[in-house]
Design a protein around this nucleic acid. Sequence first.
DNA 1: CTGTGTGAAGGCTTTCACAGCC
DNA 2: GGCTGTGAAAGCCTTCACACAG
Lengths: 206, 206
Amino acid sequence: MIPFVKKSIPRNTVYRLSLYHHCLEGPDGGSISSEALAGLARVKPTQLRKDLAWCGSLGKRGTGYDISTLRRRLAETLGTSALQPVVLVGTGRMGSALLRFRENFSRRGFDIAAAFDTRPDRRSRIASVPLFPMSSLARFVNERSVRLAILCVPGVAAQDVCNALVACGIQAILNFAPIVLQTPEQIAVNNVNVAIELENLSYFLK
Amino acid sequence: MIPFVKKSIPRNTVYRLSLYHHCLEGPDGGSISSEALAGLARVKPTQLRKDLAWCGSLGKRGTGYDISTLRRRLAETLGTSALQPVVLVGTGRMGSALLRFRENFSRRGFDIAAAFDTRPDRRSRIASVPLFPMSSLARFVNERSVRLAILCVPGVAAQDVCNALVACGIQAILNFAPIVLQTPEQIAVNNVNVAIELENLSYFLK
DNA sequence: CTGTGTGAAGGCTTTCACAGCC
DNA sequence: GGCTGTGAAAGCCTTCACACAG
């Protein structure tokens, strides 16, 4: 007997599914054709249809996709139907800036439950997110079963903090520190590195 | 006669070349093997060697790659040997935070030459970068031949500002606004979208 | 004997073409 | 008639295997 393997969605496709989800924030009610949605997301219509096939056959021929159904199904597929708690570590310029966008994230299914810093100075909250010292990170993560972390500490501290996050059970990290984190296989890491993005763009200058 | 076509470096490879360049900031002098550098960048050694082959044959068999030669060649290939002027538009939380990292960028070959905002209030500089009203954007870009822009305005304003940037000759945009920009083919756009990154990570949670 | 450079193979993604349903 | 779903083809990227330089 051939073992059943649930083939997982290709990485690029997962990325584009988030993108489609994002593009559906504007339009409300009714349907949208693959061509229209592909235009918003700047991809080819055939690619969009192939991608959406991973979420099941939910388009109507001759009509397109029902927007609210599609939105729901995308959230289910990506795992953002239920509100997901997130911790943010490092409340320097970048970390604080991100905390101000919290409603943006909560609309997308992410709740920044707490922020941590080595030096939580006077304030106990930033943009209404409670701020704690690093020493209480592990306990908070455990008690609230947090699986996602945003890392905004300076480069020199990043690997140590990353190790601490992994040790207390974090499964995925969005890394703003300008270093490549060394993590075990099973930890998912996405990097946001402005210098690399600029360098990458400069290759395409004429 | 077969026309000579300079095959361009694949997108993923360009991205990884930036990554390697970045990983070489620490070690100084001497050589490094493909295995060691691949470990720092978290890729496979064979992939690294294939990627570096786009920069020419610069490894020594039995030894590895000379670090300073490699760094120089990567910068040449990516087009960051000469200092590249960049404009930043939108000095809200995110824009201001980025301006504080300017030395980080200048070390990598990018000079944030000016920042622009609709409401440049009292200050004429942020983190020593001169701040101008939007009305002087076109002139500045033209006079200084700026080709790269960082876009940090709110989503509702982003497309308009993007159009203005394209109109005055900007060739590449690093977009922090949470929308998909509609631009002509030839403009390179990289997006930094925290909500999408989080959504993407949440797919990989167990 | 170590570690690079590279054709060839394999695997994955995108695009095409068109059948099928509304 | 319009638009989706999907096998097949094409294209691209990664990995392998190994020749060969230092």
